[in-house]
């Protein structure tokens, strides 16, 4: 009965803890490991990264958009088109925060060993701003304007139009004025540098980057 009492107390502690979102049983970790390129130890190391990010502003064990922004840009505020899209894609349940499982699943696409198709698909969804299933001219224009403003570069309307027209001439094979997933895939496969940001070398050595996982590990791999 002592075991039952201890187990009950531990459960109660987890359920009432602000960090209950961080509680993942060994079975949860194995399930995540079986459906991603990560080992159980790597997922535990990612939990250390997740903990760090989830307490940047509000210490509630969840990653909010401001925390994502602070982690990536070192500043918590300001409008940013790309950050909004990255956040939306990570927040798969669309409930306004990124939970640990969403974090691991989204980051798994960035693993050096993740399938190229997953990277191509993620980038397509990232650039399909209005989520219509197509990347349209207006969306490409909006993203180019955002990157130019981020870099402080001025470009004439004619130059901007020329870049957009060249882009569609390169990719829009059926000439319907929008890029579908097949057209995007064909172009991305031929131009792998476009997907450079879709691979994070750090993820291959995540247990070295966050060695503190060892203090909470469930498995010795």
């Amino acid at each position: 009965w002592i075991e039952v009492l201890i187990f009950g107390l531990a459960r109660c502690f987890v359920q009432n803890s602000p960090y209950k979102h961080l509680y993942y049983s060994y079975d949860d970790l194995v399930r995540l490991s079986n459906t991603t390129p990560f080992t159980v130890n790597e997922i535990e190391a990612l939990r250390e990264l997740y903990k760090k990010l989830s307490r940047l502003i509000i210490d509630d064990g969840l990653i909010h958009k401001e925390e994502l922004q602070l982690a990536l840009f070192r500043m918590p505020a300001g409008e940013n088109l790309f950050l909004d899209r990255v956040f939306d894609l990570f927040d798969e349940k669309k409930n306004g925060f990124i939970d640990f499982e969403e974090f691991v699943r989204a980051l798994s696409v960035f693993h050096p060993h993740a399938p190229l198709d997953d990277k191509i698909d993620f980038a397509f969804r990232l650039y399909d701003l209005r989520q219509t299933g197509y990347i349209e001219k207006e969306e490409v224009k909006q993203m180019v304007v955002a990157i130019l403003s981020e870099s402080g570069i001025q470009l004439s309307d004619e130059s901007l139009e020329a870049i957009i027209n060249k882009t569609f001439a390169d990719i829009d094979a059926d000439k319907d004025g929008k890029i579908n997933k097949e057209e995007w895939k064909a172009f991305a496969v031929g131009h792998p540098t476009l997907l450079k940001n879709m691979t994070l070398a750090y993820l291959k050595d995540i247990t070295t980057v966050f060695p503190s996982f060892i203090f909470n590990t469930e498995v010795d791999e």
Binding site: L72, R74, V86, E150, F187, T193, L194, N197, Y202
Partner: peptide
């Protein structure tokens, strides 16, 4: 197209340069 005309960049090559799409910031101290 004249041989002197500059080669235009594809918009996605530009967009891919955005620092906002570089998630390595997660791992930097």
């Amino acid at each position: 197209k004249s041989p002197d005309s500059p080669t235009l960049i594809n918009a996605f090559q530009l967009i891919g340069m955005s620092s906002c799409l570089d998630l390595s910031g997660f791992f930097e101290k």
